[in-house]
Amino acid sequence: MTSRFVGYFKRLGEDLRRDWQLYLLVLPMILWFLLFLYKPMEGLQIAFKDFSPFRGISGSPWVGLENFQTLLEDQIFIRAFLNTIAISGLGLIFAFPVPIILAVMFNELQNEFGRRVSQTIVYLPHFISVVIVAGIVINLLSPTTGVVNLILSSLGLDRIYFLTQPEWFRTIFIGSNIWKEAGFESIVYLAAIAGISPTLYESARVDGASRWQMMWRITLPCILPTIIIMLIIRIGNLVEVGFEYIILLYQPATYRTADVVSTYVYRTGLQGTQYDLATAAGLFNAVIAFALVFTANRISRKVSSTSLW
């Protein structure tokens, strides 16, 4: 056993001497990982401690799994967790395909100028800050002056105070997120489409495929590996919903569907500076996210032979 290790380190030493330029190139990345990703993991301890910033990490007493117990006994946390899954899950179903569809549509646009203009138009919302997006959404959906309600009432329908109705929150949140991000996310798929050899299309044209058939039989299958990678990454973020935008849009009235783990942590942290509890919630999330990514990757590797690692 030990001789194998010795052998390994001997070989490593030889490799280092021979290819030191290559190792030098990778060094900054290794340092970056160690310093900014592994070093802070030390702080994860506080999830298992009764943490006081003044006492410090080592000075705070261990409490075992008490923080996790507190979380899991808290129905509001459980609800926030389920909401997180629901919002990302629905986002996955409804928002994930949109950039793909957009990219395919852009690909089908023949007019170069028209394509540039429309691409730019759909990219733009990505660069608007969430604060402004939230403002736009609130204005659009205002029950008195909002365009949506003006249309509803001119159609003879009842006005709806969308932002206070829990049933509408997910639709609004996911919908406006699609509006904001789909265009930008389509870039990755457009790049993948650009990588498809044009002769595949020419060959298909000669063989008699319609544009529709080419889209289904060539474009989509050829970008499938990209789609799967993006999907795995997305699944990894299933337990992650950014809190800024939620905080801007939600109301106590919509907590039932809108309160997610990050907003829960935000409120908890603000109320009692409960870093230990917040860290426990974060760790809980991370473990689940890891399990999800791991499983998704496994399944993908088996089924489609595409995988992250």
């Binding site: 507190t70 907590y255 309160d259 829960y264 409120r267 109320q271 009692g272």
Partner: peptide, 14 residues
């Protein structure tokens, strides 16, 4: 207090 209050208050506001 820390264990129960944030969630209680959340529910009350809601």
């Amino acid at each position: 207090y820390d264990k129960y209050w944030p969630s209680l208050f959340t529910y009350m506001m809601e």
